[in-house]
């Protein structure tokens, strides 16, 4: 648990006045507040540090304790014990930024010094709970069918249905599963970003799938039948005589499920890669030569 220099974080000297602290904090908050930096994890991390620094330095009692013992943080436990013997700390909070933060957003250093966030609005303002963001990594095969999955968010199990056809990077909102509302405000929401890993030989473009299959020369020239892997099994496919290399055919409704449209599928596009025979025997060479003379 490293020592955190809150003055350095806010860029202020040790003798900064309350006004200086507020000014420095507001300046940095305008730069790093998550409201102004959507989906920017670095800014969010930075803002948490700034918020924590302000939480300590903007409150005279916290600041005094930090100034006196902050560097010697190992003694914080003793302070904690002493503190617990006293009445629960209910000091008036200085103004601080709200938004998507909770106790877990404070560092271990802060927790050890001040026993968790005492962050409360000074008023009884009703506020929505914080929104939670989570990432879920799934394989492409997992999202071919709708399925249920249990997620653990902040020690609570949530069972959600993942609809078939969800896209890589897509975000779904689970209403009311974020942080608890403040002063009876509504709960926040849970946002899940899906990270879909494609470890199949299919390429996916929205609902359509693409693949390339090898076709031997004789099937390509004379036509025939080949067995093709689709996402949900094998299908037999007729090959037209004189099929050219690179020919693309479409298997209707053999692509990926359409998101939230039960029973609807995209198409599967198959490109033929014609393989010419190698290691020809003398007889084959002779016959190919003969063939070439016919053209």
């Amino acid at each position: 648990m490293p020592y955190i220099d809150y003055y350095k974080i806010l860029g202020i000297p040790k003798n900064a006045t309350e006004k200086d602290i507020k000014k420095a904090y507001r300046k940095l908050a305008r730069k790093y507040h998550p409201d102004l930096n959507p989906n920017d994890k670095e800014a969010e991390k930075k803002f948490k540090e700034i918020n924590e620094a302000n939480e300590v330095l903007s409150h005279p009692e916290n600041r005094k304790k930090y100034d006196e013992h902050g560097k010697d943080w190992k003694h914080a436990e003793e302070f904690e014990k002493a503190k617990q013997q006293q009445q629960q700390y209910q000091g008036n909070r200085q103004q601080q930024y709200s938004g998507n933060f909770n106790e877990s957003d404070f560092s271990d250093f802060f927790e050890s010094m001040f026993g968790g966030s005492s962050k409360q609005r000074s008023s009884n303002t009703m506020f929505r709970g914080q929104d939670f963001n989570a990432e879920l990594q799934l394989n492409l095969k997992d999202v071919y069918t709708s399925h249920k999955r249990t997620l653990t968010v902040n020690n609570k199990n949530i069972r959600i249905t993942i609809p078939a056809g969800i896209e890589n990077g897509q975000v779904i909102k689970i209403t009311g599963h974020g942080g608890k509302g403040i002063n009876n405000g509504p709960n926040g929401d849970l946002y899940i970003t899906f990270n879909i890993v494609n470890n199949t030989h299919f390429k996916r473009d929205k609902n359509n799938l693409y693949t390339t299959i090898d076709l031997d020369l004789y099937n390509a020239l004379l036509g025939g039948e080949v067995t093709v892997d689709t996402f949900d099994g094998k299908v037999k496919l007729k090959v037209k005589p004189e099929t050219q290399n690179g020919t693309q055919i479409k298997l209707k409704n053999k692509g990926f499920p359409v998101y939230k449209k039960d029973g609807q599928f995209g198409d599967l596009y198959i490109t033929f890669n014609i393989k010419t025979p190698t290691n020809l025997t003398d007889k084959e060479k002779e016959l190919f030569t003969e063939l070439s003379k016919l053209r």
Partner: peptide
């Protein structure tokens, strides 16, 4: 609209951003 209005409240009352600034932001 609550979520959005809460954000706008934070911009104005907590970050000291005036309405012209909020509009631009």
């Amino acid at each position: 609209q609550i979520k959005n209005i809460e954000k706008l409240i934070r911009f104005h009352f907590e970050m000291d951003i005036n309405l012209e600034g909020i509009h631009a932001i």
